[in-house]
Every structure is written in C-alpha cells, then in structure tokens.
C-alpha cells in the first residue's frame, strides 16, 4: 500500500468508525450514492413504529410512541375551567412539549432545548388547524364549566424526527382519552363521581354518555431530509445534525394537506421535491 493520496483513498486507510466521525458528510454521501443509509434502510423507508396506549395510569389518556429509538410519552390530564365569555360552550386544549435532560446529551437541567418550544408550537398549530378535536365536545355546562385538557408530551429519547413522533403520541393519547364522570356539587364546583359511593350520587352526573372524543380527521406527519438531490425519509438525530435541510409534511387520514413546514436550510425545495416527499407518507397511510 502506498501513501494515501490526498482525499479519495483516505477512507480505505482509516477505520470506518473514525472515518464516520472525521468526515461525516462524506461518509453519508458514499452511502447515499449506493441508495442505502448507514443503518441499512433504503432512502425512502421510515423506521419501525410502535404505539402503546394507556402507559400512564395517573392520567386520563396516555400513549407511548416509538419511531426507531425516538420515544415520546404523551399524557392528558383533565381539569375544569370556566369558559370565556366569547365561547361559553367550548373547552380548551393546552399542548406542551417537553425535552427533559434525560432525552439527549445536549439538554442540561435549567437550560431548555431550543427545539422544544418550536415543536410545541408546531404541534398545537397542527392539531388546531386539522380540526381533529371539536372544542364543543369539551363543554360540560354551557357558560359555567368546561374541560381544560392538558396534553403534555415528554421526549424520553431523542433520535431525530421529533415532531413526527410527538404528533403520533399526541394523537394516540387523544384517542385513548376517557373523561371522568363528574357531577355538580352544591357550591357549583365540578367533582368526580367516584364509583365507591355505592352507585347513588346525590347529583346526577353531567356527562354520563359523553366519555370519549370523536376525532374527525387524524393527522400524520413525515419529516424528510433534503440533501443535494437525495430525499431521506424519517431521519435519525445523526442525519439531522449533518444534513440540515428538513421538510415536514402533515396529511390527514383522507390525504388532505394540513401543514407543510420547511425551516430554511441550504437546499431549496421546489415543487417536484415536495411532491416526492409526499409519496412515502401516503405509502405509510
């Protein structure tokens, strides 16, 4: 073996792991030119996805969603509020996304991750614009009491495609949500009817029938990386850190576009690229 000349043959001299760390972009481009990714996936394939409902017993609805090793835990706690004057027969849904320090080496306690508020806003925008939840269903007594649904999503393991996993877990938790049976007490406060009372509460429960939300359309999302003329579906954290241009497409169950999000990046997306990023998502639906 002679001296490694300038760049081309360097890879054969250096061990694969070292090459991956030193020249991450070149490492990826080599793979991409062979239409394969370092984890063995073809470019358009998303990672395996699992959902478990009812993971948190102390919540009224909860779900654990995993995309590859990205793990999200979403749970809903129902509280009671007085509805506003403008919309006396509507409840409220508050969505919050958290990245606790356990999820990634870049998050430290006291210094919240930059990505968290971005994903949080994206989630509440997507869920409100999809019209999935009818806020009127969260009403208890018109003008007096309504549900305030606190939907909190925790990222337990961050390995790319955070928004996709967060949306999946949020939607699953909403589908698992079951309202507690409540009645009005003498002071006009809403209290839970406990089943231990022997089945004869002093007051008739206000929501005997309405125990579940009817979800109208269900949004799904897919994040893709654009790099040169390659499109990589469902990126890992490593891929996201190396190739910066991301496109997130959200469709609902009838293939209607709900949102399209491209936060800058060096690659410009044109119509054809966007259309291509739709197709793997349609495939997963």
């Amino acid at each position: 073996m002679g001296l490694p000349d300038a760049s081309g043959d360097l890879s054969s001299e250096v061990e694969v792991d070292a090459f991956r760390r030193l020249f991450p972009l070149r490492f990826y481009e080599r793979h991409l030119s062979e239409s394969i990714r370092p984890d063995g996936r073809p470019l358009g394939r998303a990672r395996d996805t699992t959902i478990a409902l009812g993971a948190v017993a102390s919540a009224d609805g909860s779900a654990l969603a995993k995309i590859g090793s990205t793990t999200m835990l979403a749970a809903i706690k129902m509280e009671v509020m007085t509805p506003s004057m403008e919309s006396p027969d509507e409840g409220c849904l508050a969505i919050d996304f958290h990245m606790p320090p356990i999820c990634s080496p870049i998050v430290r306690p006291g210094r919240p991750a930059e990505a968290a508020p971005v994903v949080s806003k994206q989630l509440s925008d997507t869920i409100s614009s999809s019209g999935m939840v009818d806020l009127k269903e969260l009403s208890l007594v018109s003008g007096k009491a309504a549900w305030m649904a606190y939907l909190d999503i925790y990222c337990l393991d961050a390995d790319g495609a955070l928004f996709d996993a967060a949306l999946l877990s949020a939607v699953s938790a909403l589908s698992h949500l079951q309202f507690p049976v409540v009645s009005l007490n003498e002071d006009g406060r809403v209290v839970v009817v406990s089943e231990e009372d022997g089945g004869k509460p002093e007051k008739e429960p206000v929501n005997r029938e309405k125990r579940k939300l009817t979800l109208k359309s269900i949004p799904f999302s897919l994040t893709c990386i654009l790099h040169k003329n390659y499109i990589l579906a469902d990126p890992t954290a490593e891929e996201e850190s190396i190739m910066e241009t991301l496109v997130t497409v959200v469709l609902d169950s009838s293939s209607q576009l709900i949102s399209l999000y491209k936060p800058g990046g060096p690659v410009l997306a044109n119509t054809s690229v966007i259309q291509v990023s739709f197709s793997p998502l349609k495939h997963t639906l």
Partner: peptide
C-alpha cells in the same frame, strides 16, 4: 383561565 382538578374536592 384558572383551572382546578375535579378530583381534589
């Protein structure tokens, strides 16, 4: 708005 948990009472 301020909210309260119905199970607290």
């Amino acid at each position: 708005p301020t909210t309260y948990s119905p199970s607290m009472a």
